[in-house]
């Protein structure tokens, strides 16, 4: 696929934290939109429920917004579903493969469809079937 020379130069020297940051922010906005669609809600409904202006919700949904944990918590409360989850290190034992879920997407996690990843023996690191899911050896 054709790639631009100047953008390739930027990609080569781009800070790793920027890649991680935009992966988070973009996927978070995607997850929020998925949940809104699932609940037949619009951004203005989310704004009303949170007491925010629609323009602020637009910023959140842009794909590059730096969410605070408090904002994520408030959105989770309104939407009644997880946006992200933190690794629980108490469950990690030596030699055990565990999952590190960065952002829950509709394909990897919902309360109805969640499959504990240690049961999914075919899961590979950065498997395209489990976007944003990594198995780490400990």
């Amino acid at each position: 696929m054709k790639k631009n020379r100047i953008l390739n130069k930027i990609r080569k020297y781009r800070s790793k934290y920027v890649d991680i940051f935009v992966d988070y922010t973009f996927d978070l906005s995607h997850r929020i939109q998925f949940l809104l669609d699932q609940k037949s809600m619009e951004q203005k409904d989310l704004a009303k429920a949170l007491g925010k202006n629609e323009s602020e919700i637009s910023k959140w949904m842009s794909g590059s917004h730096n969410f605070t944990l408090k904002t994520i918590a408030r959105i989770e409360e309104v939407l009644g579903d997880k946006l992200l989850e933190i690794v629980n290190e108490e469950n990690i034992s030596k030699g055990e493969k565990v999952s590190v879920v960065f952002i829950n997407t509709e394909h990897t996690y919902t309360p109805r469809h969640y499959i504990p990843l240690r049961e999914s023996s075919h899961l590979k690191k950065y498997s395209p079937n489990y976007r944003n899911t990594v198995i780490a050896d400990c």
């Binding site: 953008l7 930027i10 990609r11 781009r14 800070s15 920027v18 890649d19 940051f21 935009v22 992966d23 973009f26 794909g63 590059s64």
Partner: peptide, 12 residues
């Protein structure tokens, strides 16, 4: 930083 964010956003 903003150029890097913009370039990554284009990728996404």
């Amino acid at each position: 930083e903003d150029v890097e964010i913009l370039s990554k956003l284009l990728d996404k």
